[in-house]
């Protein structure tokens, strides 16, 4: 008797059909959250069950999969999801942004620009941008139906009234195709401009909240703001300590208990590519380190 094996990419075919229908509707109505019958996955909620289901529904044997967690290819979440699909679908995996055909991401958009034909799959914890302003699903659904988004502007205004600027730093609300206000998942607002007019297809899966939404390629995505308080990006005012990049999103890493810290690229692939190309920063590992201190 043969040992039991999983169906290709873990999910059963009926589940895939249901998710695929939801994905098609999501693409046809950019920014609208399509309800779907999310399944139990062999990982806890919050570990990317929504993203994993979307990836499982689209993945084919010819795909090359990259998984990142906060920009990093080497964290537990990224490695376990990559191994999961390596095992259940037998797909090739990579850490290179340009070589990947499907990229599943938790809370970052890669620094390298995406190209046509790629699919970016986001893991989304709370898909409803209005949820913290209005807890009732019936009401938020009505607000989306009527495009009644005044409440979101009031929230941003209250930021300005209290802090002097829009203090929302991640999950910064966007308007898709001039219609739906959408949560770009908890990506830093640094990444928001990359959502706009992107060549790749962007799919968002929220497993616990049972919603799928999408941004088709070349779609207008505008970060909400005010004329006198326009949207601004934010990054630490420092070059990457490993590759010297001054235009990438940085993680702050505490190095000792005396206030020591260093800033490094959150996108590990971007940082490694730059180091391989000869760029280096103040804390680069040998052989660059000697040079950096000369």
């Amino acid at each position: 008797m043969n040992a039991p094996t999983y169906n290709f990419a873990y999910l059963d075919e009926q589940t895939k059909r249901m998710i695929r229908r939801a994905i098609l509707k999501a693409i046809a109505i950019p920014g609208y959250q399509v309800p779907f019958a999310s399944r139990e996955m062999p990982m806890p909620y919050g570990w990317g069950t929504g993203g994993v289901q979307v990836t499982a529904a689209i993945l084919g044997p010819d795909d090359v999969l990259k998984v990142i967690d906060q920009g990093s290819d080497d964290t537990t979440n990224a490695i376990s999801i990559r191994k999961f699909f390596g095992k259940t679908a037998g797909v090739a995996t990579t850490t290179s942004t340009t070589d990947a055909t499907v990229i599943q991401t938790r809370h970052r958009i890669p620094e390298a620009s995406l190209h046509a034909g790629q699919v970016l799959v986001y893991q989304v914890p709370i898909p409803e941008p209005l949820r913290f302003l209005e807890p009732r699903e019936t009401e938020t659904r009505r607000m989306h139906a009527l495009a009644e988004y005044g409440l979101m502007h009031v929230k941003l205004y209250e930021d300005i009234a209290r802090f002097g600027h829009i203090a929302t730093a991640y999950a910064y609300p966007v308007k898709v195709n001039a219609r739906y206000v959408m949560d770009p998942s908890p990506t830093p607002k640094f990444d928001n401009p990359k959502l706009d007019n992107c060549a790749a297809l962007q799919l968002f899966g929220a497993g616990r909240e049972k919603r799928i939404y999408a941004i088709p390629p070349y779609t207008t995505v505008v970060s909400l703001d005010f004329e006198d308080h326009p949207f601004t990006r934010y990054r630490f005012n420092a070059p990457c300590a490993l590759c010297g990049a001054d235009n990438s999103y940085l993680d702050e890493i505490v190095t000792d208990d005396k206030g020591g810290r260093m800033f490094v690229c959150s996108d590990t692939d971007f940082c490694e590519q730059r180091q391989a190309a000869g760029h280096h920063g103040t804390e680069s590992a040998a052989p660059h380190k000697e040079k950096a201190h000369v």
Binding site: K16, I23, L24, I27, L201, P217
Partner: peptide, 10 residues
């Protein structure tokens, strides 16, 4: 499905 998804996305 990928053909239909690509068609819908483009």
């Amino acid at each position: 499905f990928r053909s239909v998804m690509d068609a819908m996305a483009r």
